[in-house]
Design a protein around this nucleic acid. Structure first.
Length: 868
DNA sequence: ACCGCCGGGTGCC
DNA sequence: ACCGCCGGGTGCC
């Protein structure tokens, strides 16, 4: 009955899934991210410094652009210049032209720039007050292979690049870089909530009382929209405004950024706070004028006579609540004609917005909300800009963007990017569409603003129009390159920058010593599982086999070279701990690598012949009928465990290669060939339709059955890293009448939403159990209907487990949350848990120290896992 | 630009 | 006077 479904699961998930698991569930997400950032972009685009050259900017008196001492300038080719097609224009950070590069030098530079041999950057150190010309320090950056061409090309025209004195970026810097970046990642968003602006009450139209930290956020957001604080790094110096980072100065007050990043952890109420902002902070710090319906006590009789009349008789009362004067700053910059807040979000959270708007806006308040989605959407600009809130998705926005895009034609009061981290590739259509929106105020909501590397931040700053960093060159030069090259000041600047525009609290943050939100209690208990005798035997076999392999690698010093293999061994042991059938596929990988396809084909044929002959083939080691048959290169058939045992003991005792018990040919563990998966499956389904249980399955079922008797209303998350294990679990759940749904990474977004809704439903016939793949869904997943979590197998990274638990232990959870972790006694799982405990240490070690130390600790990890 | 360059004015000392 | 020198006009690319 269930077997067909079960097989489906196997076919579909087996190899690919193991592979993903092997690399992703793996040890060091952070270091991977850092390495990615470092290798992709040593500085922005893989450039190295070729050298410096002192040049001259001429024609200052013709242009208004000014430069301060130490300020960077941009160099732009002007091939269309009528006087000189080699012209190179010099501009300051704000794009105002300062002058030109002197003709002869420009000719040399034009050659380099036009052929993309190098990027040239300029900094002005002196002569900024000159009337006619000023010196500029030029630096040439490009790909290593173009270095000589550039140096020679410039030299031929009489310009000698100064190549000395460039700070060495050797291996030493890499470690420095890694340690700093780790710092950056971990601390960038730390402590961003120090006494911001106190608390603010939401407008009356907000029906839900705000928690203290939400009032704080509201206050901060209102202030960021209303108060004219100077943007980061700006200060007033006499009559001028001066930017201490770029050294730019201006007479005019720099344009403030009205908005920022609300980066609170999920579950702290970013959506509610944003709704409160929309209703509370319209123009001039006053609340959004809304219509409220007051149903007049029309006589019952009238109501019963004609309902329609009632509707028309509702009297519209315009509330005019005058909030206290928000700030003394004049709002002259406010374009009072803008009314609408545009919310852009992933499709999956649209329903959440609608739901929350309904829930938190007072019932008698008429807020005009339009969902701009679907082919029938109303594209009228007049209509859209008369709404209070328009909600759309990133995809609709980018599909729409074009000349006649209504969304791009409207001057929005406010644009909110929900889950703002989803736009981070600046080349993506979606990003361009987002950057093209016109708005007075801009907000990014994101629980995880940095997804992979520092460069993710650029999109966010560009969206906020944080000048001058919205221009890539300045971002790269001032922030990204310094940071990725491990420059302390660069990091400091980045931190300051982020701090100025971000509010972030975590679930564990405290206000006045009190936690932000009080969540129900959470209890975590570990339940030890004992393997059955057969399971134990199989496990020990696999362990010894793996142990020998790894021992060999350790002895050879090739552990890291064979890391994939090592992880595969560990993976198999972990699978053994869960259910024997998880192994079926992987074990056959072993032979694949060491057996040429042709030989393998022949051996499989032979094996098939032997087994199909009907005779009860006997294993010459155990003298019983073969169990888990394998065939050696010399074409003899044994039970896998038996022959593996032989190979192990022979190798150990005689320290030489093992020989076939039948013909004394050399045999190796990795040359044992077994049936390919499909046939194993066929064999299984024809020979035995039996479903096997395992100790861990028993442990889970025991718990579930007991708990169902105690309280049938509890819902459960059953979590495993192995989706095939989830498939295996389906059978006993069905058998015992548990209704369940399943959520894993292979499901479409639509299906996911559906499944989540089904599970979250409080209907009596809604599913009691969700089978959840550990890494499915990612952030934002709300599974508060569940209050008991079963973690079927330990993860390498405890944070992954935490995240998973947090999906139900979060705002909205009303019950005490119980977490049960199943750990197989005396197994690799126990060792994983031990290692998890030291994980924080290990991570520290990994980043703070040299490469070799890092490797050593990883090897130590493996030794500990295998008890070597 | 307190420069260099150009081109017109000028021309014993 | 087909030069030198002086001094005013002038000046990015």
């Amino acid at each position: 009955m269930f077997s067909s479904r079960w097989r489906f699961g196997l076919d579909r998930y087996s190899e690919v899934d193991l592979f993903t698991d092997r690399y992703e569930a793996d040890v060091e997400t952070l270091s991977q991210a850092i390495r990615a950032a470092a290798s992709e972009e040593p500085d922005a685009d893989g450039s190295v410094l070729f050298g410096h050259l002192k040049g001259t900017v001429v024609g200052l008196r013709y242009y208004t652009g000014v430069v301060n001492q130490g300020e960077m300038v941009g160099l732009v080719r002007q091939p269309e210049n009528p006087y000189d097609r080699n012209a190179v224009m010099v501009a300051n950070i704000y794009g105002n032209q300062v002058g030109h590069i002197k003709r002869e030098l420009a000719a040399a530079m034009a050659h380099v720039m036009d052929n993309n041999l190098a990027k040239v950057e300029g900094v002005v150190h002196s002569g900024t007050k000159n009337t006619f010309t000023m010196p500029v320090m030029l630096s040439f950056w490009g790909k290593e292979e173009n270095k000589n061409a550039v140096i020679e090309g410039m030299a031929r025209r009489g310009y000698k690049l100064n190549t000395g004195g460039s700070s060495a970026t050797g291996t030493n810097t890499l470690n420095h870089l890694i340690s700093l970046l780790k710092n950056a990642f971990d601390n960038l968003f730390d402590g961003l909530m120090e006494s911001k602006d106190g608390e603010k009450e939401a407008a009356k139209s907000v029906g839900t009382p705000l928690l203290p930290h939400q009032k704080q956020a509201l206050s901060w957001m209102c202030a960021r929209e209303n108060k004219s604080v100077l943007p980061p790094f700006w200060e007033k110096r006499g009559e001028l405004y001066y930017n201490s980072l770029t050294c730019f100065s201006a007479k005019e007050i720099p344009e403030r950024i009205r908005g920022g990043i609300l980066a609170d952890d999920m579950g702290l109420g970013k959506t509610l706070t944003t709704i409160a902002l929309i209703l509370t902070n319209f123009h001039n710090g006053k609340p959004l004028p809304v219509e409220t319906f007051v149903s007049v006590a029309v006589c019952e009789c009238v109501q019963t006579i004609c309902r329609k009349v009632v509707v028309t008789l509702e009297i519209v009362v315009r509330l005019f609540v005058c909030a206290g004067v928000e700030s003394s700053v004049t709002e002259s910059a406010d374009d009072l004609s803008a009314r609408t807040t545009l919310i852009i979000c992933p499709l999956s959270v649209i329903s959440n917005w609608l739901h929350q708007l309904e829930q938190h806006v007072r019932a008698n308040v008429k807020l005009n909300v339009y969902l701009y989605y679907g082919s029938e959407r109303n594209r009228s600009k007049a209509f859209l800009s008369s709404q209070d809130v328009v909600i759309t998705t990133y995809n609709v926005l980018s599909a729409d963007s074009g000349v006649s895009s209504p969304l791009h034609g409207i001057n929005w009061l406010r644009v909110v990017l929900d889950e703002g981290h989803v736009v981070r590739n600046p080349n993506a259509q979606m990003s361009k569409a987002v950057l093209g929106l016109k708005a007075q105020r801009r907000w990014i909501l994101s629980g995880t603003p940095i997804q992979n590397s520092v460069k993710d931040l650029w999109m966010l700053l560009a969206f906020l129009r944080l000048k001058p960093f919205d221009v890539r060159e300045w971002w790269n030069r001032v922030i990204q390159r310094p940071v990725t090259q491990g420059d302390r000041a660069g990091l400091q600047n980045l931190q300051t920058l982020v701090k100025c525009i971000t509010l972030r609290r975590t679930k564990s943050s405290k206000v006045n010593g009190r936690p932000l939100v009080s969540l129900p209690e959470k209890a975590v208990c570990v339940e030890q599982v004992e393997l059955s005798q057969t399971e134990r035997e199989e496990y020990e076999l696999a362990r010894n086999e793996g142990k020998n392999t790894i021992r060999k690698y350790v002895a050879e010093g090739t552990v890291l070279r064979n890391y994939a293999d090592v992880l595969a061994i560990l993976m198999r042991l972990r699978q053994h701990c869960c259910h024997p059938d998880l192994l079926a596929k992987t074990s056959s990988d072993l032979g694949k690598t060491s057996t040429p396809a042709e030989l393998r084909e022949r051996l499989i044929d032979k094996l098939r012949l032997v087994l199909a002959s009907g005779s009860d083939e006997e294993c010459s080691v155990c003298l019983e009928s073969v169990h888990l048959p394998v065939i050696t290169h010399c074409a003899h058939v044994y039970c896998r465990p038996c022959i593996a045992q032989v190979i192990n003991t022979e190798q150990l005792t005689k320290k030489e290669t093992a020989r076939c018990p039948l013909c004394r040919s050399e045999i190796k563990a990795n040359e044992l060939v077994e049936f390919p998966q499909e046939e194993m499956e066929e064999e299984k389904s024809t020979n035995s339709d039996k479903w096997r249980t395992s100790s861990k399955v028993q442990a889970l079922m025991g718990n579930l059955l007991r708990l169902r008797c105690e309280d049938s209303s509890i819902k459960y998350l059953v979590v495993s890293q192995f989706t095939r294990f989830l498939s295996i679990l389906e059978a006993p759940l069905r058998e015992h009448g548990f209704s369940f749904v399943r959520l894993d990474g292979t499901m479409s977004q639509k299906k996911r939403t559906q499944v989540i809704q089904e599970f979250q439903s409080s209907a009596a016939d809604s599913p009691a159990i969700m089978l959840l793949s550990l890494k499915a869904g990612g952030v934002g997943l709300n599974l508060t209907a569940a209050s008991h979590v079963f973690l079927m197998d330990p993860a390498w990274n405890p944070a992954t487990e935490e995240q998973c638990i947090d999906r139900c232990h979060r705002l909205g959870q009303t019950r005490k949350v119980v977490v049960t972790k199943f750990i197989v006694k005396d197994s690799v799982e126990e060792n994983m848990v031990k290692i998890q405990r030291q994980k924080q240490d290990l991570v520290e070690k990994a980043f703070g120290s040299s490469n070799t130390e890092r490797k050593t600790s990883r090897i130590d990890d493996i030794k500990a896992l295998m008890e070597l």
